[in-house]
Amino acid sequence: MAQRILDRLKETFGAKILETSSPSGDEVAVVARDDWPAVARFLRDDPVCAMDMFIDLTCADYPDRRERLEVWLRLYSIGHRHRVCLKTRVSAEDPKVPSLYDLWRGIDWFEREAFDLFGVVFAGHPDLRRILLYEGFEGHPLRKDYAAEKTQPLVGYREVPPTKVPPFGTAEGMPWSRR
């Protein structure tokens, strides 16, 4: 349905659109991080796309890839009733992505969330604080190499009898998946 958005993007940006696909009927376009703001702005302002509604911004971690953090931006058009997902990829060493703070108001919190949970740094975001976790939390828990059970308590624990009984250990770590 929204294939014409992908066509329109390819028409306008040519080789800058690195990949397009339609997994399970949702149109996806991948761009390099430097083109991220330009393409996003085009999606919003172009009358054919007119993506006036911001839906979601989040991230996924693929530690096997060189550019392991994949940022997803989902947009919707109230007028045309179509949606698209725009992606960009960055490495963990240099996780900087230009912020889209000015384009949609809703972006603010979602960028903070992606920063909080994945450590993607949105350059240009005026107030990039943690939002779901607390100041002083180290690391980014949704990265695959953060052990799920690694807590960072803010208050000291009281001495209580151990609550975990075998076969559950205290730190099982986090299997990436069941290969």
Partner: peptide
Amino acid sequence: TGGFYDNYATVPGIDRII
């Protein structure tokens, strides 16, 4: 006990703190 949220975000039982 923390329930089935046995992860980085939750306190494993409030008897750990009060």
